[in-house]
Each structure stands twice: as structure tokens, then as C-alpha cells.
Design a protein around this nucleic acid. Structure first.
Length: 343
DNA sequence: CATTATGACGCT
DNA sequence: TAGCGTCATA
């Protein structure tokens, strides 16, 4: 009965490019013979990243070298404490991506291996009437769609959930990175075509804009591969948060489009850590509440006021408006702009 | 909750 | 304002 549901505008189009196992790929550029072999990059006694061959043997990020070698005795290990080489490749990636999205596009680096691109204008100006979607389209299962609908209803009115779906409450508190597996979708081309044409979903034109943007993403990924030799994963959606989540759905070397109409069905059951700006500290404080807050749906039901209290108790000096921002993001509404030239 | 960084922010 | 601590990020 307090805060109105956040307004979801679909007007932006945001891409997130995420280099697959970045340090490992940089090393493989110099040593092509390592491509088919398990390769790990270490700092001190830890594996900071590894290629996908190594992952098949159970090697993981932030594993101790000891564990990694036990799981994969023929693991090739390279020291990655000198970042010079990686910084250089990172700049090449950024420079290639700057060519895409047109003059009005905005590009923002996040760390060395991720780049956001706001391609709103280019997607608007594209005249193609029936754009074909490139890559994957996320499609939620019907149960998730129902759960999202009842969550919205719950917050709009103070009523019990519809008799329809009381099905899944809180999911297990899974490991970081674990949740991604459960939500991978590979859309069949026919399903994708149907979803894009579904006027019921939205009539603001976002489906077409996102499909056009998926083509830009595909072209940019192609350029990165041809000119640098790197594979990247990409998310296509209407905000930074959603693009980032989408990019994680299909990896490596894949791209995924997430329609804003499907966002809540994806986000509601995910751990609160998927929300940008909500880090380890706040997430663990949320889990300590009782009842504990694990998922974005839990956080959405909590509301802004209790979250403000928790932030004051948890953080030294919570930035003004943080509670509201986080709460809105728990409902898949992220208005954070792509800031041009952050590098 | 680590590695080796960088960036955003608030406080002084 | 510059510099420091905290928190988040890869």
C-alpha cells in the first residue's frame, strides 16, 4: 500500500558484451596450441579464470591451485598477475565495439572484459519491417509467467495470490553462477518468431527494436572474432541489468535476447545478487532477516521502507535513493543509463 | 570469501 | 579539494 509499481519503459535498447573467460582467451591468442587443452590463469595460489576445456574437468574460478590440479592433472597454468597484456586486449575490444551502434550510441566499459552499448537510436532508425532475431530468445515457462503475474498483483493490491499459482515459493539458495544453468533457454526459431510477432505482449515496438539490435550484436561479435580472435557472449534487452542477465543465459560465444515483458518471470526467482549495486554485504544481511530474503520476489514483497532500515543497519552511509533503486530492480526495472566514455 | 585490480560514493 | 574508507565489480 506504499510505493507504486515502477514504471517500465521499453524505449531503450542495451547490449552487454562479455568476453568469455577473458584472461584465458588472451593467453590462447598468443598460444593457439592451448586452445584444445585445459588452461587456467592463476594469481597467487588461486585460479582466477580458466578456459572451457578446463571447466569440463571441474576447474572453477577462485579455486585453489591445489584443487584444480587434483581435478585436472594435465592443467596448463599461466601466471596472470601482470595485467598489461589483458589491458591492451581490453582496449582493442572496446575500440572495435565503438564502431557499432552508430554515432548516437553510448559505450561503457565494466571492468576489462565487459562493455555496455546503448543502441536505442540505431534500433529505431533501422527501417527493416520484419527483422529476424539473431541468436537465442529467452522464453519463460508458463509457471514462471504465472508467478510473475501474481507477484505484480500482490503488490498492486493487498490480496492473497490468485488460487492459480501458489506453486513455487522460495527456491533453494543456490551458489552464485548456479542459477544460470536452470534458466538457459534455446528458443526454436518458430517460437521466437511467434513471440516477436505477439502483439499481446506489447505494442510499443520493443520487440522489433530488440530484434534489430540482435543483428547489431551478431555483427559486432563477428567483428571481434575476425579482427581480434575473441569470442564473446552478449545480452540484448532494455536495460543494463536485463542485458547482463540475458548475456549469462547462453555461454560461451552465444547471444540472448530478453524481452522486457518476460523479464519479471526470469528475475523473480533469482537470488538478490543479480541486482546491480546489491553486493555481498547487503545480500547476506537480507538472508539474515526473518523471514529470510533470498530471491528478487522476496525483496520486492519486502518493500522500500524495510529495505532502507536494513541498509542503514548494514552500510556505513547508504547513498540516498539506493533502497528505492534496489527495490525497483527487484521488479526488473532498472533505469541506470549507459554512461558514455568510462574509459 | 580469496586474486588484483578499478570505479563510485560519502565523509572529513 | 584531495585523500581515505567502504562497497561493489570483474
Amino acid at each position: 500500500a506504499s510505493m507504486p509499481l515502477p514504471e517500465v519503459s521499453h524505449k531503450r535498447v542495451v547490449l552487454l558484451f562479455d568476453c568469455d573467460c577473458f584472461y584465458a582467451q588472451c593467453e590462447m591468442l598468443e598460444h593457439p596450441e592451448w586452445r584444445k587443452k585445459p588452461l587456467a590463469i592463476k594469481q597467487k595460489y588461486l585460479v582466477v579464470t580458466c578456459n572451457y576445456v578446463a571447466r569440463k574437468s571441474g576447474v572453477r574460478k577462485l579455486q585453489s591451485l591445489e584443487d584444480a590440479k587434483l581435478r585436472c592433472p594435465d592443467l596448463i597454468i599461466v601466471d596472470g598477475s601482470d595485467l598489461t597484456k589483458y589491458r591492451a586486449v581490453s582496449m582493442r575490444v572496446f575500440n572495435v565495439l565503438k564502431r557499432f551502434g552508430g554515432a548516437a550510441a553510448k559505450h561503457e566499459r565494466l571492468g576489462m572484459d565487459e562493455v555496455f552499448v546503448d543502441v536505442t537510436r540505431a534500433a529505431e532508425e533501422d527501417r527493416e519491417d520484419e527483422p529476424r532475431l539473431m541468436g537465442h530468445l529467452f522464453q519463460p515457462d508458463p509457471a514462471a509467467v504465472r508467478a510473475a503475474r501474481t507477484l505484480r498483483a500482490e503488490l498492486n493490491f493487498r490480496e492473497a495470490p490468485a488460487a492459480d499459482a501458489k506453486a513455487e515459493q522460495s527456491d533453494s539458495g543456490s551458489e552464485d553462477g548456479d542459477w544460470v544453468r536452470d534458466y538457459r533457454e534455446t528458443a526454436s526459431p518458430d517460437d521466437a518468431k511467434a513471440a516477436l510477432a505477439d502483439e499481446q505482449l506489447c505494442d510499443c515496438g520493443c520487440q522489433k527494436r530488440l530484434a534489430r539490435a540482435s543483428k547489431i550484436a551478431a555483427e559486432a561479435r563477428m567483428a571481434l572474432f575476425k579482427e581480434i580472435g575473441l569470442t564473446v557472449s552478449c545480452g540484448v534487452s532494455t536495460s543494463k541489468m536485463l542485458a547482463k542477465i540475458a548475456a549469462g543465459l547462453n555461454k560461451p560465444n552465444k547471444q540472448t535476447t530478453l524481452l522486457p515483458q518476460h523479464a519479471l518471470a526470469l528475475v523473480h526467482a533469482l537470488p538478490t545478487r543479480v541486482i546491480p549495486g546489491l553486493g555481498f554485504g547487503v545480500a547476506s544481511a537480507l538472508r539474515e532477516l526473518h523471514p529470510p530474503v533470498f530471491t528478487c520476489a522476496d525483496l520486492a514483497r519486502e518493500g522500500v521502507r524495510p529495505l532502507e532500515r536494513l541498509l542503514r543497519a548494514t552500510l556505513k552511509s547508504p547513498p540516498a535513493g539506493l533502497a528505492k533503486d534496489l527495490w525497483q530492480r527487484s521488479l526488473a526495472c532498472d533505469t541506470d543509463a549507459v554512461k558514455p566514455f568510462s574509459g
